[in-house]
Design a protein around this nucleic acid. Sequence first.
DNA 1: TATGAATGAGCGTTCATTCAT
DNA 2: CATGAATGAACGCTCATTCAT
Lengths: 196, 196, 196, 196
Amino acid sequence: MMPNLREKKQEMVRKFNRSAIYDAAVVLFKEYGFDGFTMQQVADKAGMAIGTLYIYFPAKEEIIRYVGDSLFEKFYISVTEVTKQGSALEKIELFSKCFFDFGIENRALIKLFEHAEIANNRKQKMQMVVELLRNIIKTGTAQQEFIKVDPDKSALYTLSLLFGYNNHIADIQDINPGKDAKSIVAFIKPHFTGIN
Amino acid sequence: MMPNLREKKQEMVRKFNRSAIYDAAVVLFKEYGFDGFTMQQVADKAGMAIGTLYIYFPAKEEIIRYVGDSLFEKFYISVTEVTKQGSALEKIELFSKCFFDFGIENRALIKLFEHAEIANNRKQKMQMVVELLRNIIKTGTAQQEFIKVDPDKSALYTLSLLFGYNNHIADIQDINPGKDAKSIVAFIKPHFTGIN
Amino acid sequence: MMPNLREKKQEMVRKFNRSAIYDAAVVLFKEYGFDGFTMQQVADKAGMAIGTLYIYFPAKEEIIRYVGDSLFEKFYISVTEVTKQGSALEKIELFSKCFFDFGIENRALIKLFEHAEIANNRKQKMQMVVELLRNIIKTGTAQQEFIKVDPDKSALYTLSLLFGYNNHIADIQDINPGKDAKSIVAFIKPHFTGIN
Amino acid sequence: MMPNLREKKQEMVRKFNRSAIYDAAVVLFKEYGFDGFTMQQVADKAGMAIGTLYIYFPAKEEIIRYVGDSLFEKFYISVTEVTKQGSALEKIELFSKCFFDFGIENRALIKLFEHAEIANNRKQKMQMVVELLRNIIKTGTAQQEFIKVDPDKSALYTLSLLFGYNNHIADIQDINPGKDAKSIVAFIKPHFTGIN
DNA sequence: TATGAATGAGCGTTCATTCAT
DNA sequence: CATGAATGAACGCTCATTCAT
């Protein structure tokens, strides 16, 4: 076997293992919470020895970080993609729907973002999301779809509403991403347009 | 000593001990997070033996639950009290301020509510708070301060906003209860009044 | 049972357990070297659960230290006691015999003194022993049993000889405390007395 | 390439690798103590894969043994070389100086000799050194430089003194090889010459 | 009730050794 | 021979819980 072929294979194995650990961790997060799982559980579920885990991640902490970062990235890409077209209000609605979709898929995982010590650069990530919303709002105002509102506060409060609904209200009633996004947009629309 | 006197005394001791445990747990929650403390620490801080802890609470879990319940009760009483007077909008503002005040005072503790398995009757409690808001809104509409809005959704979304702001935005900027409550009320006012 | 009786009993249990741990550790030291044993082995040999070990000693290190300190104390007391009478040369001989007796009893344990990080105050302990020898020599000179020798160096070299013989030569031939002590004293006698 | 040329090359590679492992191990011994290093560290420092280590040494133990043996050989050659000329007393002094020089250079390594299970043929090696000293003493007596002394015991005790001083006293005061060798020779001189 | 010493399963992590390539 | 990813037993230590007093 040629060296670079072997390297390719090894690289694949590496990716496969990292992915197996990631998948195992995600499942365990959902089952036991963001740090309520053990390394042995991850190893078992990923189908490898405990020692192997430590080849890929030097500490449990790193697995948590990695899962947190990966999930955020996944979320951020989705939410960025989905808000590329449409009116400002439509963008907010799609943003919201995307937020809830992600929340349903990763119910337990969204809690990750609540732990500064776990998802590193948490503040920075949060601000990236706020920035996305702020730009939507600014554009809305620039294009006279929205009346003049404070884009900072509006973005913050809109995001707050989504976070709160997703993380806290979800426990008392099921979320229907499409319907709830529409409904929430209707709730905040008067603030942005001046009309009910 | 008469039996019922002894009973009274015992009842007092029981209350005193439960309270000592509660106080100790609250302090430790604030210092080490909702499960980052040990039963020994609670016993020490409460001034009793660890075995005694287990007379009052059969498991660590129960202490966490009890603290969660007590805090909620405290919160619920405050928020009920504070919304007894004023216009609907004023009530919402005071409710919000109260919410944030509580959040600042119990920063670490608020996480408790995020754990369904920990704060029991979480759903029920949440609904009590929603109900409070709903009544404020209904009254606002009845008294023609508010336009006709869906009181269920409005309550849910208002509460979502407060939860989201308090639990998630607080990490990227400090909360100023009075100012932020006012600002948030201004954000949702158009929804309720139809005017900016 | 009266409180102070109970306390006494508990105190006895405490002493018993500490002693059981000490005994277990000593045996394991002899078998596996000064840090080649595990806490589980100590627990098993001492007839208690691993957790109990940690009630008495907060870390493995502390067990090692305790054994080291205890052994030194035992040794120092013996050696002090034995050198209270007789001529200077007799004292040195008895000191040597005592040294070897201790070495035989605690073959593996004497290594402890070779590890500064383990037997704390090692330097200080060593100097206590040197001091003892120095005083014997000074007295010998004062009483004209010995000629004028440098007491510091003489003590250091005498002790070196004993350490070296006990720790290194013992491996190639058995030590006979009485005989070897006599023989060694004969070896160094000319230095002290000027006569063979 | 001719077979015996290839064999030669392979032999060279083998020697090179063994030597690289030895060098790495020596450095790690000095840094982390005689068993405080890992096989991975040795492999890294020797510039090879960990698997390769096991081709040359079937177990960690063997590396330790090999280092011990090599160091002894190095020491034995030095000490033999240095005692080829001069009077008996000069030889003993040079032997001592050489001993201390080696001890300073290999402070951490000297502990190796204290572990019977590690330095194999320890007894035999020790006896080689004793033999060297014994011969010096015998020659001293034969040449009437020394009075009649028991060459066995004299050798043993002299070596004991050096071992003890180097391994145990070194911790309470720095060793100055030249000065201390002279001083120690002065200490034992009366035994050998009958004169102070 | 109250005590706190005792328990031991379980944790995160290490590392000598193996073996498929 | 050389490689280094994989292994898993073993480590020191923690702590919720129990139970004899």
